[in-house]
Design a protein around this nucleic acid. Structure first.
Length: 593
RNA sequence: GACCCCGUAGCUCAGCUGGAUAGAGCACCUGCCUUCUAAGCAGGUGGCCGCAGGUUCAAAUCCUGCCGGGGUCGCCA
């Protein structure tokens, strides 16, 4: 339990007492009462809005209620002072022991510090991310969704939720046929029959050679090795299913390798084709039909757009408008096969049926137009019990010293995720992807990402972690026999930490559990990056005070007890950094090179 | 035309489930290395929070309407 939650509960108890004494009407809802650090540190340690949110329902004025409550809180354990301020805030100043005790808890918890039971007992959460089409290697845009999804999953787990990480393989549809044809071209090439764009078009009328990248060459060669020339002169009907499966398997292997290089893992890979083949689309849609959410109708063309080939046509439609969407959405193509949306409904229905009513999808921003209908669908298939949150990831602008790196997927020379990871390392890629909120565009400068300076937040944070351990190494020189085990640090006399900068640092550390909870509630892992940045800045700042005032250094020759206490503080900072970096999947190093 | 995202310091962005005097980095200016890592720190300059209304004790935050940038728009995935 964080310090803030602890005092929230103390405040609630005092409010109950006041209600019992007739000072407040019975049955008030304390749900909006919050306890947080005041914006200005000068105002105190923790602040509550209790009087302001309860004044109206209690039919009193905020300052009067605040005064009465503050009088009681002033007598609570650990409270040094309780003051009414502004329109009715109550600012509490807590005894240093309260904060020092929290530092002790952080040390004992180690990387698990900040873990909460916030999500314990709640519905398990399904986080779906990456879900790139298996038609080629991942590029940097995919990396963003991958990292955000992975970090969000870890964050939710830290907050006590049960989480399943899932990847939806879009292995059905026209794109996959194009992949198969493109692979077949490479197969012919491997057999000595290199195609040109013209000969490809002549041989496969109506099909374009979509995926021209070199990465399919080894797949074509492997196909030639395993099937020889057997497919060479067969008609497409014969080889298509074979090549399709072969190519998809090869692409998924490629993608999983790319993900592994980034340290991303999934618990479950679900195939779109398997969903369709298992009849789940029919099942899901039958359920929707039974509920009256499906009908045959004619859609209006979108206004303000020119669509030459628009023909009004009766279609099978999902009544998405009943669930907040703008128009009803088609489920069946004119050739009688399901639309992508229909399969996706079945997929989300399947997730819900597996027990995941709480679903999160991480998508690229180009899918923004799809959000409402999918939320509508989840709402419909779960009969209102489920909820879908969609995190849209904006573009990543890849830069090299401020200049855009050209990316052209068509020419087949787009910058792959693998290239970027090889150049700057997975930790850097991961952290950088989390330094912006998902719906803001992200500039990713390859040169800055490897710089060791304040420009590079990854370095700045890791540097602080390394510094904390560096202090311990130096302490070993001053006190060769000093026991620096975690147990010894936990047993340190923390009351020696009484400098303002030290107490500020402890308060920052103590804010970590609250940050985790807020970030988890908002489904926004990037918030932790900003918090870590602030914590680390405070640490560097305090550290540097030792330059001018040697008595503030972490290692104080001649005072082993003080040194031990300060090393405990440094370790506390390192603990929170490690705890945060673990959520991000980034290594916390003890030494920089 | 509709829908979604964005608009905060010269630049890149936090803050947005309403709270006190709106923050950080970069850039620019001024300081600090016989030193536990100066790979850093301290200070300064810099704001009609896109515009206009509304709700509220309280609005950068919520609502409405505009303006500007991006994305998407039946049988692509």
């Amino acid at each position: 339990m964080s310090v803030f939650k602890e005092y929230l509960s103390i405040i609630q108890i005092q409010l109950e007492v006041m209600a019992g004494a007739g000072e407040l009407p019975p049955g008030l809802d304390f749900g909006r009462v919050s306890v947080e650090p005041p914006r200005e540190a000068a105002h105190g340690d923790v602040s509550t809005n209790a009087a302001m949110v309860l004044a109206k329902p209690a039919q009193t004025n905020p300052r009067a209620l605040a005064t009465a409550l503050a009088a009681r809180l002033g007598r609570a354990e650990g409270v040094v002072s309780a003051e009414v301020a502004g329109p009715g805030f109550i600012n509490l100043r807590l005894a240093p022991e309260v904060w020092r005790a929290e530092l002790g808890r952080a040390l004992e918890a180690r990387e698990r510090y900040g873990d909460t039971d916030h999500g314990t007992g709640k519905a398990p959460v399904n986080v779906e991310y990456v879900s790139a089409n298996p038609t080629g290697p991942l590029h940097v845009g995919h990396a963003r969704g991958a990292v955000i999804g992975d970090a969000l999953a870890a964050l939710l787990e830290k907050a006590g939720y049960t989480v399943l990480r899932e990847y939806y393989i879009n292995d059905a549809g026209a794109q996959i046929d194009k992949l198969a044809f493109s692979t077949f071209a490479r197969y012919l090439e491997a057999l000595g029959e290199a195609l040109t764009e013209e000969s490809f078009a002549a041989r496969f009328p109506g099909m374009v050679w979509e995926y021209r990248g070199e990465y399919l060459a080894p797949v074509g060669a492997a196909l030639a090795r395993s099937h020889g020339a057997a497919l060479k002169n067969a008609p497409p009907e014969t080889w298509l299913p074979v090549v399709r499966d072969f190519a998809v398997a090869a692409m998924m292997a490629l993608i999983k390798d790319d993900l592994a290089a980034l340290g991303i893992r999934h618990d479950v890979f679900t195939s779109e084709r398997a969903i369709v083949a298992a009849g789940k689309v029919d099942e899901a849609l039958t359920a929707l039909e039974g509920a009256g959410h499906i009908y045959t109708g004619v859609l209006e063309p979108p206004k303000g757009m020119v669509l030459d080939d628009w023909e009004p046509r009766p279609q099978t439609l999902f009544r998405a408008t009943a669930f907040g969407d703008d128009v009803d959405r088609p489920l069946m193509k004119s050739d009688g096969t399901w639309t992508y949306f229909a399969a996706d409904i079945a997929y989300h229905w399947d997730k819900a049926r597996r027990g995941y009513l709480d679903q999160i999808d991480v998508w690229g921003a180009d899918h923004g137009g799809y959000v409402k209908r999918m939320k509508a669908a989840v709402s419909a298939v779960t009969v209102g019990k489920g909820a879908l949150d969609v995190k849209l990831c904006q573009l990543v602008n890849l830069l090299e010293r401020g200049q855009p790196v050209r990316m052209s997927k068509r020419a087949g020379n787009f910058v792959t995720l693998r290239e970027v990871v090889d150049e700057v390392g997975k930790d850097v890629v991961r952290f950088m992807m989390l330094t912006r909120k998902n719906d803001a565009p992200l500039d990713f400068d390859l040169a800055k990402a490897t710089e060791q300076s304040l420009d590079n937040p990854v370095f700045y944070v890791q540097y602080a972690h390394a510094r904390a351990y560096s202090a311990a190494r130096h302490a070993k020189e001053a006190f060769p026999e000093l026991d620096l085990s975690l147990a010894a640090l936990c047993a340190a006399d923390l009351s020696r930490l009484d400098h303002r900068g030290e107490l500020d640092l402890i308060r920052s550390i103590a804010g970590w559990p609250r940050q985790v909870e807020m970030a988890a509630d908002a489904h926004e892992p990037h918030r932790l990056a900003f918090y870590l940045f602030e914590l680390v800045a405070a640490f560097h700042s305090h550290w540097s005070k030792g330059n001018a005032e040697p008595n503030l250094r972490f290692v104080v020759p001649g005072d082993r007890a003080l040194t031990l206490a300060r090393l405990a503080l440094a370790r506390g900072v390192a603990t929170v950094i490690a705890s945060g970096l673990k959520v991000f999947g980034v290594a916390a190093v003890e030494e920089l090179r």
